[in-house]
């Protein structure tokens, strides 16, 4: 991130400089979770497994795919997600432009009342924090190992299996970690 204009905070500074995120849902029952594929290579393999894991847990999902990870989502897609879903999982960012654009998408959907979380690789933890600060939005993120582009499909699926409970907990306060062997 290239530093730009510097502003002085006009508030009493009693709160965080970040706008609080939309509160997580109290239950996933009856809700539809948008699975937004940011359009980066290999992300679909991770999301395929995420979709299966949601289905196993009885969580209704709806797939979306951005035309490119290098721009924010088309307005029509944002409007469709906001109209059809109550929460959103955005995956999988493993580069600077993905991180920046997906955080803006998350902010956009958060302002429309969707509980959301972004999934990124560990390497972009700092970039995500910087983008949060620049937008002024206390966004939620779950991290998976970096790099991911050189992984096998099975390894990407394992990332999804390892992170699914944390991802769902980020969008639903009542989401209990469910051991895989008990889910079906």
């Amino acid at each position: 991130m290239t530093p730009g204009l510097e502003l002085c905070d006009p508030t009493a500074e009693t709160a965080s400089a970040l706008r609080p995120r939309t509160a997580p849902l109290t239950t996933l029952a009856g809700s539809t979770v948008a699975l937004m594929d940011i359009g980066k290579m290999r992300g679909d393999e991770f999301i395929d497994r995420l979709e299966q894991l949601c289905r196993e847990r009885g969580v209704a999902t709806r797939r979306y795919k951005k035309p490119t990870n290098t721009r924010v989502a088309p307005r029509e897609m944002i409007a469709d997600i906001a109209a059809s879903c109550q929460a959103v999982i955005i995956a999988l960012s493993d580069c600077g432009s993905c991180t920046s654009c997906s955080t803006h998408d998350l902010n956009d959907l958060d302002k429309r009342g969707l509980a959301g979380v972004s999934v990124l690789t560990e390497e972009f933890r700092h970039a995500f924090d910087q983008q949060k600060a620049a937008i002024g939005f206390d966004a939620a993120a779950i991290y998976v190992p970096h790099p991911m582009q050189n992984k096998t499909t099975a390894e990407l699926h394992a990332f999804a299996e390892e992170s699914i409970d944390r991802i769902l907990a980020a969008i639903c306060a009542a989401s209990e970690p469910t051991p895989l062997e008990h889910a079906a």
Partner: peptide
């Protein structure tokens, strides 16, 4: 002394 907020160059 107010808290400084640095925007991204493209913001």
């Amino acid at each position: 002394t107010s808290r400084r907020i640095t925007l991204d160059a493209w913001d």
